[in-house]
């Protein structure tokens, strides 16, 4: 589904990703772990199409297409979804209105009929219930005045509504209390299907108690320095990132 080859990315002239290789197949959940400043969020944002980042080298293929040449909206319409680390507030636009706009643009792209306000509200309510999300959230302006936990839950809720093929979660677990963490994990697990894939970017092993990844990758200083199964996360939790750094002889603090 997703094939990243030797991806090098810079922001403001500074190289952040220094040759990433990653292959994600349908049905898989990949956890990408790494310390602060390792380039985790850059990877997520590049995949979503954030305009700030310059791709220096490498390629990203998504379902056989060159992802890097696609506009952010086209990536989303083709089923790529990134849960933002810092969701943006949109005053004056209700969550429901925003999601219907997005949902219908995606439907239109697929040649499906758009849903009217009533039909869509029904769908929203049903998903909110499934996700254990308070209905009052639907009528509030997008993320405005939301607590940190509400914002992250709202990202996962959007994911549940838009049903992407490839979900990229950018530190969605950071700063969550245990209840919010469970809601987020539940959302990801519910979306787990043979035809879908998830890339879970995280600093901590904690969320992996609730989501069992198929693969774990460790990103240090813009490179994936180790890959393995779920037990790698536990090892990392126990020994810390310095252990990988030493092992790979990557200069500390990079």
């Amino acid at each position: 589904m997703l094939e990243i080859k030797n991806l090098r990315v810079a922001v403001g002239g500074k190289e952040i990703l220094k040759g990433i290789n990653l292959s994600v197949n349908a049905g898989e959940v990949h956890a990408v772990m790494g310390p602060n400043g390792s380039g985790k969020s850059t990877l997520a944002q590049v995949l979503a199409g954030h305009p700030t980042f310059q791709v220096i080298e490498g390629e990203v293929t998504y379902e056989g297409r060159n992802l890097l040449e696609m506009m952010p909206e086209d990536r989303a319409k083709e089923g790529v979804f990134m849960a933002f680390q810092y969701p943006v507030e949109i005053p004056g636009v209700s969550n429901a209105y925003f999601l219907r706009s997005a949902y219908n643009e995606i439907r239109k792209h697929r040649g499906e009929e758009e849903l009217d306000a009533m039909e869509f509200l029904k769908l929203l309510r049903q998903r909110a219930k499934l996700m254990n999300i308070d209905e009052s959230l639907l009528n509030r302006p997008v993320n405005e005045g939301f607590s940190g936990g509400e914002k992250k839950k709202n990202e996962v809720f959007q994911m549940a509504v838009l049903e992407p093929k490839l979900a990229i979660l950018d530190e969605t677990d950071s700063g969550l209390d245990i209840d919010a963490l469970k809601v987020v994990a539940e959302g990801v697990n519910q979306l787990r299907r043979p035809e879908r894939a998830t890339v879970l970017i995280t600093h901590y092993q904690r969320i992996l108690n609730y989501i069992t990844p198929d693969y774990v990758h460790v990103l240090v200083d813009g490179k994936i320095v180790r890959s393995g199964g779920k037990e790698l996360a536990l090892e990392l939790e126990e020994k810390g990132y310095d252990w990988v750094r030493e092992k790979e002889a990557v200069p500390a603090g990079a």
């Binding site: 979503a48 199409g49 954030h50 305009p51 506009m71 952010p72 909206e73 990536r75 989303a76 319409k77 979804f81 990134m82 933002f84 969701p87 943006v88 507030e89 949109i90 005053p91 004056g92 636009v93 925003f98 999601l99 706009s101 997005a102 643009e105 995606i106 792209h109 302006p141 959007q158 838009l162």
Partner: peptide, 28 residues
């Protein structure tokens, strides 16, 4: 621009994202 990116990353085209943000600005 960060709000525009947020909306486009959900599949909303750029002109529609701009329209939605302007709507929200006034609707407030």
């Amino acid at each position: 621009e960060s709000a525009i990116f947020y909306l486009t990353a959900r599949g909303i085209s750029r002109p529609n994202a701009a329209r939605l943000l302007t709507f929200g600005f006034a609707n407030d």
